[in-house]
Every structure is written in C-alpha cells, then in structure tokens.
Design a binder for these strands. Sequence first.
DNA 1: GCGTGCCAAATTGTATACAATATGGCGATT
DNA 2: AATCGCCATATTGTATACAATTTGGCACGC
Lengths: 242, 242
Amino acid sequence: MDIVKTAKAPAGPIRRETLHHGAVAELRAMILSGELRPGSRVPEVQLCEQLGVSRTPLREALRVLAAEGLVELRPHRGAVVTPIDPKEIAAVFEVMEALEALAGDLACRRGTPEEFAELDRLHDQLHAQFDAGDRPAYFLTNRQIHARIVAMARNPSLEATYAGFASKILRARSLANYDEERWRHSLSEHDGFMAAVRQRDMAAAGSLLAAHSRQTADAVLAALNGCGSDSPAGAGRQAESV
Amino acid sequence: MDIVKTAKAPAGPIRRETLHHGAVAELRAMILSGELRPGSRVPEVQLCEQLGVSRTPLREALRVLAAEGLVELRPHRGAVVTPIDPKEIAAVFEVMEALEALAGDLACRRGTPEEFAELDRLHDQLHAQFDAGDRPAYFLTNRQIHARIVAMARNPSLEATYAGFASKILRARSLANYDEERWRHSLSEHDGFMAAVRQRDMAAAGSLLAAHSRQTADAVLAALNGCGSDSPAGAGRQAESV
DNA sequence: GCGTGCCAAATTGTATACAATATGGCGATT
DNA sequence: AATCGCCATATTGTATACAATTTGGCACGC
C-alpha cells in the first residue's frame, strides 16, 4: 500500500498542527455537522483512511472527544457518537442558563465600547436576516452574538465551558428546527437583552439572557420529544436512548 | 447467552478498566495530590515504567488530561503539568460561583429527605473536625458536602463540570493554606447556607453558597499572590497541606 | 424444535519500531 | 573572545504488528 503523505483529504489536509490535533477538529466538525449521526458506531479503520491518518492519532482524537462528551467509548466494543438524550439536553440547558446569566453580567462590566458597537451591528444584521427569512444566516449570527457576549466576559474558563455546552446544544438543535412563531419570539428576546446590554444593565442583561436560554430550551426540548413538558424536575434515572 | 457477569451494579465495578483509563486516574491523582508539581515536565518514558504501561496508553491518557486542562501539550516539546495561574484560578472561581448557586437552588428543589439528613450529618461532622483542629479531615468533609449538594441537583452535566472546576481549585488550594481566621469564617458560612438548605430556601441557599465560593476565592487568591509567583521547591512552609 | 456451549472472525487494546523535530554543544569565522 | 551556524542527541509523533476480548454463528444435546 502506498502511503502518500501528500494526499489531500477532501476536507483539508492536516499539516501545521499534529495529526491527532487535526483529527480532533475534523471529527468534531463531522459530529457537529451531523455527518456522523448520533448513535452511529465509529469504526476506527474506516475513519483512518477517510482522514488519511493511522489508528494511533485517531484513537487519541477519540479519547479527547470522549472527554468532551461527544463520543462514548465502550471497552472492546468500539466508539459511538453520543446519542441525543433529551434528559441530558435538558440538563445542559439548565447549566447553560446560569452560564448565560454570568456572561451577560460580566460582559456589561468588562466589554469595550468597540465590542458593544460590534454587538449592535450583529444585532442589526440579525434583524435583516430575519426579515429576509434566511434561517441559516440568522442562526449563524445568533451564535456569533452569544459567542461575542461570552468573549466580552473576559473569562477563558467560562468561554471554554460555554463552547462545550453550546456544541452539545447545537447537535440537538440540528435535529429539531423550531417553528416560525418561536423564531419571531426569539428575535424579540434578543431585542430585550440587547436593550439591557446597551444600558450596561448587568442584572437585567443576565436575567434576560438566562430567560432567553430557558425559552430556547423549551422550544428545543419540545421539538425533541414532542410532549415538551417544561418541568425541570426529572427523575434520577437515566433513560437509555433508543 | 446472558452471562451473569454483565450485571450493572453501580457499586460493584468490574476491574475491566483499560490501561489508558487507569492511567488517566493515576495521573490525575498524581497531579491533584501535588506529586507532579505544576510546571514540571512530564517525560513519557519515565512515567511509562513508573505506571507499568507502554507509551501508547500513556499518551492517550495525556490527551485526555490535556482536554481537562490539567496538562499542556507542546508539539515535539513534551507535556507539562499546567502551572497555577492566579488569573486563571480567579476565572475558575468566577464560574464556580455561578455553579454553586445553581447547585444550591436545584438541590433544595430535588434532594430527598435522606440526602438532606446526610447533609446534616456531614455538617455536624464538619463542626466536630473543626473543634478537633483536624484540618485535613475538615477539608475532606468540606469537599464531600459540596459534592453531595451538587449530586442532589440531579444534573450530570452540572456534576461533571463542577468536578472539573473543583479539581483545578483543589490544586491551587494545596499551594495556599489559609489561616485560622478564614477557617473559622468558612465554618460560619457553612452554618449559614445549611440553615437555608434545611428550610429548602432555594434562593437563599444558592446565594449563600455563591457568597461562600466568593469568600473562598478571595482567601485562596490572597494566599496565592502572597506566595509570590514561583516557589522553587516545596518548602516546609505548608505544614498541613492536604 | 429449542436451548446451550463452543468456536471463529472481527474489532479493539497494547506494545514496539521507525521517522520527524526541537535542543544543546561544538567548532569555525569575524 | 564572541557570535553564528551546524550537527549529534534525545524526545516526541506516527505507523504497524501482535494480543486480548467481544460477538455472531454453528453444532450438539435435550
């Protein structure tokens, strides 16, 4: 077999960084984009030739993703992409709510004028994309706004934690697009916390962001399991997903 | 076809853990206990024979710990135990405060009577250990109490995130023992939030736990900055650490 | 016909061998 | 004598080979 190091993977060769680091990025993207669907098994050798790397760096990448919670490793049974468990997503949103509140508060305290202006620009863009009915663009801008707010909090630990939770939510959301009414309501919530942010009202911005997260949680969870009961008090048992 | 060995007993773990999984646990313990000091390099081969494993599982373990933030990997330069950065610890505490508040709130909503009773028992034990002047036992019980509260929140994501942050704080605290006055004050804070917890007062428990976390942060950060930036070797200054 | 025990194939877990890169020392040159 | 450049060494990054374990199937017995 000819191992051609110059072989270009379709998604891009991994050259500057180490192979396993690049493999982590590739695999994470594949999981978040849905290319690797939740619950699907992940045969090592198949991914090896798909990414153009050997088993060693690929396995190291899988361990990292397992630590992030995106895949699950079962000894001697292989790895599976972590299934979307409504219970778990509910739990994630519960923490996310607190993180959003914290981020909103800190962002108001620590953001620079330039950052606030950038936030305003993105918010206008969000409105334009809503008016244009461009859902994908809207959601991208939406994520950028929230990421921007978190960055303004000047807290790398918060930023990293937030990113991890956001990725799990993103996977769930990709399975559950919510309807027009929720979309409109989401935009009005953005109007709300942006008003608080403009006034540097830490308390209001935090609680409005938390409320926005809670509303999003309700919509996503409703779309996930249909019944959509918003009772956060769940039983302690973990439901095994199908 | 069913072999009875596959019984899933939560308290009866089969020692089927893979080598890299065990290596992760070993290394994490070594880092948290301070056996591997912050900033020290981590030569692979040396650890290999020390742990009795080959390089492959060890490297996988290092990747996992790097994802957790306990070690840093520099390409072709080896791994180092993540240094204690006061800035980072401050950031960690900032998030921790929000997590404690959330945990306290949820624990009041979802804890069982047995768990509340257990909490009371641990709290009494804490007092006894304070009266006995047994610092190590006190801090162990302290951690157990907080872990118990987080468990009562019935949120695995919160629990995992909390554990990660707690481990970083633990490393910092091992370098910085705080004084008698702070110790006494810490106990009174425990009295405070325990009173709220007993009454299932979610708001009070959350805010008091957050305040306790903030006070702890002040003490730890003060001790960290007092120690200076770098201590060459473990001087006998910290007599009762851990 | 159905259940049980064993066996073979496949896949993962581990170890070792090879290649690439960073580091420290040595010598030549100015 | 000091500095720059090169090279030897050591350590990490990667690939492949080997061992262990699970799983599905099959023959045998009831």
